[in-house]
Design a protein around this nucleic acid. Structure first.
Lengths: 351, 351
DNA sequence: CTGTTAGCGCCTTCAG
DNA sequence: CTGAAGGCGCTAACAG
C-alpha cells in the first residue's frame, strides 16, 4: 500500500501529474515531459497534440518544485531588504517583481531590519530554498563579521551556480546596479550652496550602513570644493526614519544651520515636521532637502527638494540584470541608473 | 556516468546532501534524516551526535525543495496584493513576513495591479510553486468572471490541502481577518457630522473593488442616520492614488462640500494638495479626512484626520491565522482588528 | 534504535 | 521520434 504525505494532506484528491497526462495520452512520461516542458527534443506533431490535449483536459500544471529539483533551477529569486514597508524598498521591490514576473520567475522577499544575524539568516533561508539568485537591495551593514559571514554564504552560493546582484553600496563584490549616492548628494548640496547657504547641516543615515558613507561623502565633497570646512556640529547621525529625522533636526538646530539636507526623504520629512511644529518656516527660515524622491516627497508638508532616484526602474533594471545573468548573458558592464535634482518648495536662499 | 543538470550549473562543486552526511557519519540516510529533520522517531544519543557533527562539518543545509516534494509541505506562503509599493500593502506584507518568518516560512509576494488576468495568473503561479497557503490581501475585483475563476483555482487548491486566508473584502469565502471598513468610515463621517458639516463629499475607491462598496456604505449609513440624503453630486469615484484623489477633489468642489472624506489616505493626501494649491485652506475652508492611517498620514501637508487601521498588525494576525490553520489549529472564530478614529489637523467645524 | 525500500514529480541521458 | 531507466534530495512506512 503506497501512502504518501500528500495522501494525508488532501483527502484522496490528487492533482494531475505528468504520469497521468502520459497515461491518458498513451505515451511515455518522457514524451509528455518533452512537450510540456518546452524541450527542444523533437516530438511528432500528432503525439504532441495528443499530449497537449490530455494535459488540457486534466488541468495539468507542472509541479515547479519537482521540476526545480530535477533541473537545479527553481525560477525563484530571493530579495533582501531592510524593511519592505519602507517606501524606498517597496518601490524597488515592485520593479524587481515586474521584471521577474515578466520572465516567469517568482520573488521571495524578506526584511532584515538591518540586523546582522537576521540578514544572514535571510540569506541562508534563500539558499536553502534553492533560489536561483539573491538580490541585495539593502545596503551592507558595515561590520566585519557581517561581511565575512555574508561573503562565505554568498561565495558558496555562487560556486553552486547562484547569481548575486547588488542594488546598493555593499562590501561584497558582485554585479551591481549603481546610482550616484555620492554624486547625487553632491549635486544637491551644491544647489544649496549656489542659493547662498554656507551653514548646511547634514543628517546622515545609520552610521553602520555603507550607503551612509557614500552619501555623506557627497556632502563633504560639495562643501570642501567650495572651500568650506565641514563643521562636525553640522553633521548628525540619523536612522532613515521620519521620527529620527525630526530628532536629528532638533539637535542640529542648536548649530544654527540655514539649511538641512537629510540622507533620505523620510528624515527630511521628519525634519520639516519638526521645524514647522517649532514655528520655523520652511524654506523661509531654513531650507530642507532629502534624497530618493519617494512618492510622498512631493506631498510633504512642504513639497520636498530632493534627488530623484527612479526606484522602480532601479528594481526593474536589477531584475533584468539578474535574469540576464541567469541566462548566461552578462552585460558588457553593470548598469547604472540616473539620478536627477528635483527642486520643489523646501529650498530657497537663506534670508 | 551520472550526469545531472546540477553538474552543468556548477563547476563540479556540490553541496553536501543528506547522503554525504550519512556516509561521513557512518549511518543510513534515514537515520541522518531523522536527526536533521527534527523527527520524533527515536535515535540514540551517540548516533545523533555523530550525525550532527558530520552535518556541521560539511556545512549541511537541507534542500527545502526536496523536503517539500517529499512531505507535500513547502513552508511557503503566497501573498497577493494589488501593488507592493502602495504603503497600505507594504505595511501589511511586512506584518505577514514577520509572522511567517518567525515560524520558518518564506513569502512569495506578487502584485496584480488590480487586473483580473494578472491576479488569476498570480494565484496559479503560487499553486504551481506549491505554496502551502495563499493570502489574499488585495480586495476582490467585483467581476463575475474573476470570482468564478478565482473560486475554481482556490477551491481546487484547498481540496489539495492548501489554506486560503483573506485580509480584505472578498467574494470568495475563506477564513478572514476582518476590520471595520464600513464601521470605521461611519465613525469618521459621524465625526464630521458632529463638527457641524452636512455637505460632506466622498471620494470612493475604484468602483470595481469590493472594498469600495464596504467603505462607502459606511458613509451612506452615517449620512442617512442623521436624516441627510446622500447627494449623488457629493460622491465621486476615485482610484486609491494620490493623483486620483487630487482629480476627484477638483470635481467634487463643484458641489461645494465643506468637508471631503476619501476612501483612503492616499486620495486624501491628493485632495489636500489640490485644495492647498487652489488656495483653499484646510481645514478652515474645507475639512479633509482619509482612511487607513498609513505612516505618512501624520506628515501630510496638513496632518490627516483618518481611521487608524493597524496595518502591520493586520498582517501579523493574518500570518498567524495562516500558520495556525496549516498546523491544523483553527481558531474559534476569525480574528478581527480594531480600528480607531484619529483626529489630527485636517478636520474642523465648517466656517 | 537502525537500515532498507519506495516513492514525491519531473527531467534527461541512453538505447532503440 | 519514442521509451526505459536513473536520479535530483529528502521523508516515511516497514522490517528487523
Amino acid at each position: 500500500m503506497t501512502s504518501t504525505a500528500r495522501d494525508a494532506k488532501n483527502d484522496g484528491i490528487k492533482i494531475a501529474s505528468l504520469r497521468d497526462v502520459a497515461r491518458t495520452a498513451g505515451v511515455s512520461v518522457s514524451t509528455a515531459s518533452r512537450v510540456l516542458s518546452g524541450s527542444s527534443h523533437p516530438v511528432s506533431e500528432p503525439t504532441r497534440r495528443r499530449v497537449l490535449e490530455a494535459a488540457e483536459r486534466l488541468g495539468f500544471e507542472p509541479n515547479r518544485l519537482a521540476r526545480a529539483l530535477a533541473t537545479a533551477r527553481s525560477r525563484t529569486i530571493g530579495v533582501v531588504v531592510h524593511d519592505v514597508s519602507d517606501p524606498y524598498y517597496a518601490e524597488i521591490v515592485r520593479g524587481l517583481e515586474d521584471a521577474a514576473g515578466s520572465r516567469d520567475h517568482a520573488l521571495f522577499v524578506s526584511s532584515s531590519d538591518r540586523d546582522v544575524d537576521k540578514e544572514l539568516a535571510v540569506m541562508r533561508a534563500f539558499v536553502a530554498n534553492q533560489v536561483d539568485a539573491i538580490v541585495l537591495v539593502a545596503s551592507a551593514i558595515d561590520d566585519p563579521r557581517y561581511l565575512a559571514e555574508a561573503t562565505a554564504i554568498l561565495d558558496r552560493f555562487r560556486a553552486l551556480g547562484g547569481v548575486v546582484v547588488t542594488l546598493s553600496e555593499h562590501g561584497y563584490t558582485a554585479p551591481r546596479v549603481g546610482y550616484g549616492n555620492r554624486e547625487g548628494t553632491q549635486l544637491l548640496v551644491t544647489h544649496l550652496l549656489d542659493l547662498g547657504h554656507t551653514r548646511i547641516g547634514y543628517i546622515t543615515g545609520p552610521p553602520y550602513l555603507m550607503v551612509t558613507k557614500a552619501r555623506r561623502s557627497g556632502y563633504e565633497t560639495a562643501m570642501t570644493e567650495r572651500g568650506l570646512r565641514v563643521d562636525p556640529e553640522l553633521v548628525i547621525a540619523g536612522d532613515f526614519t521620519i521620527e529620527g529625522g525630526a530628532r536629528a533636526a532638533e539637535k542640529l538646530m542648536a548649530a544654527n544651520p540655514t539649511a538641512i539636507v537629510a540622507a533620505n526623504d523620510m528624515m527630511a520629512i521628519g525634519a520639516i515636521r519638526y521645524l514647522l511644529d517649532q514655528g520655523s518656516r520652511v524654506p523661509d527660515e531654513v531650507s530642507v532637502a532629502g534624497f530618493d524622491d519617494i512618492e510622498f516627497a512631493a506631498y510633504a508638508a512642504v513639497p520636498l527638494t530632493t534627488v530623484h532616484v527612479p526606484l522602480g526602474e532601479l528594481g526593474q533594471v536589477g531584475g533584468r540584470l539578474v535574469l540576464d545573468l541567469l541566462e548566461g548573458n552578462p552585460p558588457e558592464q553593470w548598469p547604472r541608473i540616473d539620478f536627477q535634482l528635483v527642486i520643489r518648495e523646501s529650498t530657497a536662499p537663506p534670508r
